[in-house]
Design a binder for these strands. Structure first.
Length: 116
DNA sequence: GTGGTGACGACAC
DNA sequence: GGTGTCGCCACCA
């Protein structure tokens, strides 16, 4: 019934699709994903999807998704591997549970994917 | 069907 | 400039 493949799945799946598209060594924010999905104000919904991400998509690179401040808010949910450890493994520096040069590593799906 | 929740974001003070 | 509060939408009990 839906027109676009990105919205043909559940909202959760849409989030997973975008997160899965995050390139190596890049990070994005919940709000950026929410805006790409058309629900900019529902950034919390993205976080919720991530809450079950480890159940539906355990392979999902959720460690590349942080809040608008570049803070590793969801690191507490990461197990057994620390979120910071994974980011550093990709060349992203993390200081005080916060990504260094967050804007530099920021990857905006709206800009990068730009609905092309 | 209603209420509450949530890995957030923006605005107000 | 930092802290606090509200809003927001979709899912779960």
């Amino acid at each position: 019934m839906n027109q676009d493949p990105l919205i043909s799945e559940d909202y959760f799946t849409r989030v997973y699709e975008v997160v899965a598209l995050i390139p190596y060594g890049k990070v994005t924010s919940y709000g950026a994903i929410a805006r790409y999905l058309g629900t900019a104000s529902a950034a919390r919904m993205v976080g919720w999807a991530m809450n079950h991400a480890h159940v539906n998509q355990p392979q999902l690179p959720a460690h590349r998704v942080v809040n608008r401040n570049g803070l590793l808010t969801g690191k507490a949910h990461f197990f057994p591997v620390s979120m910071q450890e994974r980011l550093e493994a990709e060349g992203i520096q993390v200081k005080e549970d916060e990504i260094v040069d967050f804007t530099q590593h920021f990857w905006d799906p709206v800009v990068e994917l730009q609905f092309s």
